[in-house]
């Protein structure tokens, strides 16, 4: 569309509108970022001055002086990464099985898995909590990750994707008498990287932002993920006394994912801009 010459004015107008919206979009973050450099005592009285002094690095130094945020971040990273990798593996295997192989009862099973799309985590949170309690498994990484691996959406996505890969490709590999598993890992999996990226990002963000299940499962503060940890310092008491520190924590906590995101974003754009087998 951008190739068109006649509509330059319209294009610019749209761009201007989007830029204006984008500025509004990041305003709250800029605001918080600026406030994180203000002394607590100052913020307790006013929050409407961003660019003029006083400034301080104390809030950030305080973070470096305490280990809590690091612990939460590590918990979050472990949970989110494990969950993402495990989901990709399980969903790819299953997706491949459904899309490209034949076996008895496949269609019924696929339907059953798809039906799981409709089951919200909240519908099963009470029994799930009871089950993990019976096994005395709460406050472990497994408890945080395992329930999230039953993600029918992932299987659905991968199945759709594998179906679209031309059959010839793997049939060629079959000629070499390669086993199905080998074909899957050597041929199919590399071809599905764009879909893996999509599902991976989706899973990672969901894991990262997960709140309800960790809230009831990771009840021991040592097992807090970043999300829970930030909630725990967000008590009203902390807010009135340590706003600046809290803001700095928020900024600090966002940094790793923002960095990861910037890497992945390039990757996503490349992946979705037509360089796929489709």
């Amino acid at each position: 569309m951008h190739l068109k010459v006649g509509n330059k004015f319209g294009d610019r107008l749209i761009l201007a509108a989007v830029i204006a919206l984008a500025i509004a979009w990041i305003a709250p973050l800029v605001w918080v970022f600026a406030l994180s450099f203000k002394p607590d005592e100052f913020l307790a009285q006013r929050t409407d001055v961003m660019l003029s002094p006083p400034f301080t690095l104390k809030n950030y130094l305080n973070i470096l002086g305490t280990s809590q945020v690091f612990g939460w971040t590590i918990n979050s990273l472990i949970v989110a990464c494990t969950q993402t990798l495990a989901t990709l593996l399980l969903a790819s295997l299953a997706g491949y099985g459904f899309a490209r192989t034949e076996f008895r009862g496949k269609n019924v099973l696929f339907f059953i898995v798809l039906a799981g799309l409709a089951v919200p985590e909240q519908a099963i949170i009470v029994p799930l909590h009871a089950m993990f309690a019976d096994l005395q498994m709460h406050n472990t990484y497994s408890a945080l990750v395992l329930p999230r691996l039953a993600l029918p959406f992932g299987v659905f996505l991968m199945t759709q994707y594998f179906k679209a890969i031309p059959k010839d490709i793997e049939e060629a590999a079959m000629l070499d008498n390669a086993s199905r598993l080998k074909i899957f890992f050597r041929v199919i999996l590399p071809l599905s990287i764009p879909a893996q990226a999509t599902l991976g990002i989706f899973t990672f963000l969901n894991a990262w932002n997960d709140y309800l299940w960790p809230l009831v499962s990771a009840s021991n503060p040592e097992m807090y993920t970043l999300t829970l940890g930030l909630a725990s310092t967000q008590t009203n008491f902390a807010q009135s006394e340590g706003l600046g520190f809290l803001m700095a924590q928020a900024v600090f906590a966002s940094l790793p994912v923002f960095i990861v995101y910037l890497f992945f974003q390039k990757y996503i754009v490349a992946a979705v801009s037509g360089k796929t087998v489709r």
Partner: peptide, 23 residues
């Protein structure tokens, strides 16, 4: 110390008791 959020403190304590991970 295991510091929990004031607003959900008892919810979490209860959950820990149910999970038999008792402080």
């Amino acid at each position: 110390p295991q510091v929990a959020e004031w607003a959900t403190y008892y919810d979490q304590l209860t959950a820990r008791l149910a999970a038999r991970d008792v402080p």
